[in-house]
Amino acid sequence: MAAVSATALAFTLAGLVGATGAQAAPQAGAAGQASRAADVVQRATGTADIARSTAGAGGATAQVPKPGGNVVVTAPATASGSVAVTAANGSTVTLALPATTGAAGVTTAEGTTVYPGAARGTDLAVQATTDGGARALVTLKDSSASTEQRFDLGLPDNTRLVPAKGGYDIVQNGASGAAFSMGHIDAPWAKDATGKSLHTGYRLDGNTLVQSIETDKNTAFPVVADPKWTWGWVTGTVYFNKNETGHVAADSAFLGVVFAAAPPPFDVYGILNAANISRVAWNAQNDNQCVEIKIPTFQAYEYSGGYCN
């Protein structure tokens, strides 16, 4: 049997469309490897939220409509490349696959691109999702595969990661100084082939996202693991540091400046909730903490650490 570990993924194989990029059609052996690699992921996850991708010379691309414009998700033509999620304004978050070979990608009819044999004992896969995100799946085929996977992140300027719900908010400074969560890296999950959940988690090593998966002698291989992330619109949380919290506490009109740059409807709702946000900011200032606003409810809370400095 096999074991599967992943963070958030879904798909089932309905047949191979062809190689990603301008490549010759794979031979039966290669097609069989790709089909098996995709099937392992599919059986562990399903296909409900995969965005259809179109294979081309530069990789497999999906365009997902979101407020403010399309988000474009690109899976690289080979495993040595990077997955990219690009917002309508052109800003991009990239994630390099943990490959040691340049295995060619093959895109399934459902939109999953697989890279068989991308590293020792390891297959990789990429999916665009209907929420404008991407999944980078790692299948550990046997015990020879590394249980620590490293994904180098490429973030836009003035962007940082803030721990949130077992994953990370991708936070970008706004023109007013407040930090908008413009995307999110979901908390990881892991399962083996019997459906048993495996312990897995993230840590950051500089700009590298490191996922560790715990296996033992009872683990049924292969194991599938994948970071999922979104990028390109205000989602999750707006963070204020101590200085900005003081501005919000003293003058709720400051929020008009903060949310003026946010895409609709966040600009309007932020201003409508200004009085309550200002009240929470006043309490946070007295507690030597900061204020954060949860989207889309626009409820304000006190917090400490992270961006609160």
Rank of each mutant, 00 (worst) to 15 (best):
T12P: 08
A31N: 07
Q172K: 13
G21C: 03
G154Y: 07
T194K: 10
G183H: 07
T100N: 01
K141Q: 03
T113F: 04
L137Y: 06
A175Y: 08
A253E: 08
A128P: 12
L204W: 01
Y239Q: 11
G29C: 06
A30H: 07
G29D: 09
V71T: 04
A99W: 02
Q285W: 01
Q211F: 00
A164R: 11
L124F: 01
V224N: 05
A99T: 00
I213H: 02
S80P: 13
A31R: 07
A145G: 02
T54N: 12
G174P: 15
A48H: 02
V234F: 12
V268D: 13
I271N: 11
G15W: 06
N288R: 04
N309E: 09
T54V: 15
V171P: 15
A249R: 07
D142H: 01
L95N: 10
G21Y: 03
V224K: 00
G121K: 02
A22V: 10
A262D: 08
W189I: 00
Q211Y: 03
I213D: 01
L140I: 03
I185F: 05
A187C: 04
A34E: 11
R120E: 01
T74N: 07
V238I: 11
P67K: 04
V162K: 07
A60T: 10
S304H: 07
Y269H: 05
W229T: 14
G236R: 08
T208A: 00
G59F: 10
F180W: 15
V126M: 12
S35E: 14
G29A: 11
Q172H: 13
A109G: 08
N207M: 03
N276P: 14
A14D: 15
T74Y: 05
W229N: 14
A134Y: 06
V72N: 07
A225P: 00
E110Q: 14
V106P: 11
T245E: 09
G21D: 02
H184S: 05
L137A: 10
P67F: 03
A284Q: 05
A31G: 11
T108V: 08
T12W: 09
T113H: 06
P67C: 05
S80T: 15
R203V: 01
P156Q: 04
Q211H: 02
G15E: 09
P67Q: 06
M182Q: 14
A10V: 06
F266A: 11
T78V: 07
R150F: 00
A118G: 03
T235Y: 04
G177R: 04
G195P: 01
G305H: 07
S5D: 10
A225C: 00
T235N: 05
L137G: 09
A281G: 13
P156S: 04
A104W: 07
V291R: 08
D267T: 02
V238S: 06
V280S: 10
A193S: 13
A125Y: 00
V268I: 12
A274L: 14
K228A: 15
A28N: 05
F11Q: 11
S252Y: 06
F221A: 01
G90W: 03
N283E: 13
A31P: 04
A119F: 03
T219C: 04
